[in-house]
Amino acid sequence: MCLAVPGQLVSVTGDDPLMRTGKVSFGGILKEVHLACVPEAKVGEYVIVHAGLAIGILDEEEAARTLQYLQQIEALGEGAPGSP
């Protein structure tokens, strides 16, 4: 139930911070999402959505860093096999 899905914010409606909503694309499927908890979210950014509410903004740089982590630890492991 804590499933939350990343999607791209494609448009924003309203300027009341509490009622602001936006259209979010989940792989092409558009859904209306409440934006009260991501006041700084901009069109084009990826938000993470749970139960109709965006609960966070995804950080692209950090996402890339996570994908590089494997190479980093393998580089470490090769230098000194068996060492931590």
Binding site: M1, C2, C37, A51, L53, I55
Partner: peptide, 20 residues
């Protein structure tokens, strides 16, 4: 309204909307 902390903001939001 069941859930962990993940769901609490959406559920809180619903109450705030209903009050408004």
């Amino acid at each position: 309204a069941v859930g962990f902390e993940t769901t609490a903001p959406a559920n809180a939001m619903a109450v705030v909307h209903a009050r408004r």
